[in-house]
Design a protein around this nucleic acid. Sequence first.
DNA 1: AGGGTTTATGTAACCCGTTACATAAATGTT
DNA 2: AACATTTATGTAACGGGTTACATAAACCCT
Lengths: 324, 324
Amino acid sequence: MATIREVAKLAGVSVATVSRALNQNGYVNEHTMKKVQAAIQELDYRPNDVARTLFKGTSNMIALFVPDIMNPFFPELARAVEDTANKAGYTFILCNTDNNQEKETQYLHTLLQKTVGGVVMVSSSIASETLNKIQVPMVALDRKIPNLTSITANNYDGAIEAVRYLQKIGCKRIAHISGPKDTTSAVERTTGYLEAIKNEEWFSNDFIVEGNYTFEGAYQATKRILQERPEIDGVFAANDLMGVGVLKAAEELNLRVPKDLSVIGFDGIELGKFANPTLTTMGQPIYEIGKRAAEIIIEQIENKDSNMDSEQYTAQLIRRQSTM
Amino acid sequence: MATIREVAKLAGVSVATVSRALNQNGYVNEHTMKKVQAAIQELDYRPNDVARTLFKGTSNMIALFVPDIMNPFFPELARAVEDTANKAGYTFILCNTDNNQEKETQYLHTLLQKTVGGVVMVSSSIASETLNKIQVPMVALDRKIPNLTSITANNYDGAIEAVRYLQKIGCKRIAHISGPKDTTSAVERTTGYLEAIKNEEWFSNDFIVEGNYTFEGAYQATKRILQERPEIDGVFAANDLMGVGVLKAAEELNLRVPKDLSVIGFDGIELGKFANPTLTTMGQPIYEIGKRAAEIIIEQIENKDSNMDSEQYTAQLIRRQSTM
DNA sequence: AGGGTTTATGTAACCCGTTACATAAATGTT
DNA sequence: AACATTTATGTAACGGGTTACATAAACCCT
């Protein structure tokens, strides 16, 4: 790889002039510019980004923390962040944290040593002491994190709408498969469910079971609850992955969906379209949200503007075959 | 962030000594070591990785090129590469190429400017001239690339086994939903299909339709072919995503799977378990393959050993509900 | 013509680790 | 005791950009 000094030599100018020509700052004579460009072309010169980063003290890299990219909710988010970062000239780093606090801290330190530009975080577990100690632009995505700007769906309203929709289509006993209690989105969705059923006299706490946001968790939980309470005719799963788990459990118990049981999920991931029957859901604008988080982190990086407002996006009902 | 010079000052030694203490290099007196460690602790010093990288000329970053992380085949691969890279002290960069040659070239140049350590590539489109010009360790994953070590499944044998299995369970007319013709895995799977049915007198070319490795593509293709040739009683889809598309098309045409139609996919992704009915498939050891690719790239980076042999992993039949 | 401004370019310090080389004390060998 | 080897540490160059500062020619204005 050619260096700026080789370019300077070939063009017969100093490295400072080449640098100025490259970055279009300071004065460069038109004729000199041409000589420099010719030399750059000749040598196929590309500036070493590491040297640049060392001097600037910050790199054009953006990291995304997700619990696990294998959870089908995250690829779309990752894609959105990557696209947006890429378009703005940033390189995209992906970190799977497994909701593990040590891993998160470890990753943050590693990234800090690389002077990463900013971090977009999907996390339920990040230690706030770590967060306070670490000086790098951060934004919370999908889940709220204290003291950080967050981009999320309006989970509470979405959950209410989901349950009201089940009520509207005639469900009389509506169960809720909830997500992990340490995850803000899951808690908000459960709170929404509670709000929507608060006046129903049939309700008791065992209409809520924890499915851990996983297919398997929801599958097991649903089998249990449907056997204990066969009167259930509607299920609000706190995410689509669990919604598909509910479908599987229903199938296994020979319940016809939506005839015997209506199922609604949350998120609007592709999986819902692949399922059989297709899954009704409260769709959030996933790509949009990821894109927005990336935009904000870039804004923070480039303008040091760290006091941005949090944003909430409305979820929209997507009617499919699992309800009718 | 503290620098090595501050540590040196606080410990009352030179930066060289601190560096040696850090890297357990050269001689460092026991007592000096303690002073240095105390200073490091005191200042919470962490070496700047950018400076290190600049000097060394190569960074501890590994990139993975995939067409699109939203395709459910890739997250597991990405996870495997990330885990392996991470464990070995490398940072993981994800690049979505959309099979776009320009994007690939663009990414490669960007990474080169960051002196990336190595690149793991899932690609059908990478330009060989780009490849030859670029001096960085690379390995091909899932798809073969000329002149690169590749880690793949044995697609040919797997495809033969898939079709033979359909034949064994009684299918008399077996269609094939193929993948893109520029993708080595797809071509090999089609070749395997052809090998397995070569002695069947019913065969003609219109038993093969292209589904582009996508759900939607397979869904459309299947609807078309099943209407044209209602005698079809078995489908070999070249990947699971298309297998699920076949299931959906069958459902829509009121064909019962597996009673009227048996369906087998390829890959063994999670999606197959979520589907209804669950999808029989030729499962490849996805995580294993990704992990192995990462190991090889690390081996190449650390030992400059670029002449590694390609490896092929056998696919295994996973019987589920879509065949019987 | 004299002074101020703009244009143009070069020199060298700087970012922060790593390491070749120099120096010297401590230890070992015959 | 004389010399070789090992241990210990410091100085300074280096990697490859960026930019503050210095210098000077060209241009503008009154």
